[in-house]
Write a protein that binds this DNA or RNA. Structure first.
Lengths: 338, 338
DNA sequence: CTGAAAGCGCTAACAC
DNA sequence: GTGTTAGCGCTTTCAG
């Protein structure tokens, strides 16, 4: 237990300079004589002095803390590996830039609203990264009212992009690629399991519809099911779809695809021979599945990285035009399609 | 965009009292006249004033921020649902107590050491929760040197508990229960897939060994495999075990059990008829598995909750005797045992 | 029970 | 280039 009480003042005394000089040295200011810089740094190293974050925050109005807001009900957060992976990517970037990451999970919309209002009010964070591409997002309106800096993971609803910063993924193209591949492999009665309340999911389904139309195949509502991102919903919706005998299904999430696979197994329907399955994400479960999933890979890690970098740019220059990115996706062929 | 610049000073003026009084009201001080209290609160509500966190921190030397340190390589963090669930539980408790949670993931030991040193140095956090029950923990020694408050999730190595605060789970008992159940169901050649570098895993395996001995069954090293918590290691170790023809295996983690199941499926070995599988955790994959896993449930959520509460007690009273808890576990029978 | 005033440790003008 | 001096917004003695 060392009870240090080193302040910038003490360092200044020891080095025989002013507090201001110490501060400048520590903040890498341009015009300082090498002599003083060295003198200060020596004392700093000898004493093991570290600046007090809080005092810096108060004086500089900058905390180097970024919040990660995950409004989705907490149940999603640990039932779908998407969020852990995203968090991991963000954390990596955060560490690289010497920031610290605060995590906000909500267990009810009320909690979310309350917490976000708090974040805004106490002005502790340099900015927040907001995940979730739900339609009717309840967080966004609150944040928009404030002057809290934020970047979104996933796009806002079409038409309301304004000059919001967001990092999205090419969900629409991904949907097209998936269905095009299915057609290419000879599948014809292609179903889809989507999720109506999610923007990304909608985009993927839109890709599905467009490809069918482009190929002169009618879009059959009977072949379109509506899940909720959970594995169970995948299983349930697949069951419904089965009644209409699809020969392939585009499940817009690996996790839901796992559920679909379960249903298929229960019905002794062979994948990929009796029915082809293609999904979206390429998370670990895609490989762990049996058969391994053909899927559209989205660069989750990169999304996190980019979100942090965008945040940093935003902090440096609040006036810069918004960063609106759509990261490319990639077809990964495995064993769930023939 | 409302550009509020409400300070305690302004509130004091509006309410016609001193800053100190406002501060006292806001901090629920005991002896204030109802009249003043009310006057202040009215102004606060009307204006929507919120205290500035940072200023409070500086003045009070308390941040209400708790760090969650997850030293395990980041790959574990998103390949095993354990951490997401733990994080979720902690987050819930954090929110309930009006704290904020900072998340620290490391991508290399160096990063971990550096970050932890930083946490200690800048004195920003009221305390940290440290997960991971690795033997030879590299974080612990650093933290012990400092006066940073911390509570561990998972126990430290035996003999070094001292007066450390930790929230563990009854891994040893869990191991015993698992193997006792296997014996009860008539299995006799029982193998185990453990993990040598993890304390919790060791405890579970110790339970395994002891039950066998207690029942006069020799502990056969050939039936003991060493995984690393990954699904792949489960698959790999099961393959090795197969050479020695176990009729049941206690896999000390759901995730590894999933891997084991994969191997078994590949070899057309039927679970639970040809071989019984029992695991530990009871995470979502346990239900998603085919067959669903008989497993020992550990209360991950509760662990998080307790860790936060312990932290809070520690902050209030640093001198209190250490809280060393072992939460009970529970047998959950499903379909992977006959 | 309430107010005045002194900091918490640092940064950021402003002078020199 | 470097030092001086105000604060940042709040809590917390210390009087009264």
């Amino acid at each position: 237990m060392k009870s240090k009480k080193l302040t910038i003042k003490k360092i200044a005394e020891l080095a025989g300079v002013s507090k201001a000089t110490v501060s400048r040295v520590l903040n890498d200011y341009p015009h300082i004589s090498d002599e003083l810089r060295e003198k200060v740094m020596r004392v700093v190293h000898e004493t093991g002095y570290e600046r007090n974050h809080v005092a810096r925050m108060l004086a500089s109005n900058r905390s180097n803390m970024i919040g990660l807001v995950i409004p989705s009900g907490a149940q999603f957060v640990f039932s779908d590996p998407y969020f852990p992976k995203l968090t991991e990517g963000i954390s990596r970037a955060i560490n690289q830039h010497g920031l610290t990451l605060a995590l906000f999970l909500f267990h009810s919309p009320e909690e979310g609203i309350h917490t976000v209002k708090n974040i805004i009010a106490n002005g502790l964070f340099d900015g927040v990264i907001i995940t979730g591409d739900r339609k009717n997002d309840y967080i966004l309106p609150i944040v928009l009212e404030s002057d809290l800096r934020f970047v979104m993971i996933g796009r806002p609803e079409y038409g309301s992009e304004g000059n919001l910063n967001f990092i999205d993924v090419d969900n629409y193209i991904g949907g097209k690629i998936a269905v095009e591949y299915l057609l290419e492999r000879g599948y014809r009665r292609i179903g889809v399991i989507g999720c109506s309340f999610n923007i990304a999911a909608n985009d993927r389904v839109r890709g599905y519809e467009d490809v069918l139309r482009e190929n002169g195949i009618p879009v059959d509502p009977n072949l379109m099911a509506d899940g909720d991102f959970s594995m169970d919903s995948g299983a349930r919706e697949m069951k419904k779809l089965l009644a209409h005998k699809p020969d392939a299904v585009f499940v817009i999430t690996d996790t839901m695809a796992l559920g679909a696979l379960r249903t298929l197994r229960e019905h002794d329907i062979c994948v990929p021979d009796d029915i082809g399955i293609i999904s979206f994400d390429d998370l670990p479960p895609a490989i762990q599945a049996d058969p391994q999933l053909t899927t559209i890979r989205q660069p989750i890690h990169e999304q996190g990285q980019l979100a942090v970098e965008t945040m940093l740019q935003l902090i440096d220059n609040p006036e810069r035009p918004a960063n609106q990115v759509e990261l490319p996706v990639e077809l990964i062929v495995r064993a769930s399609t023939k």
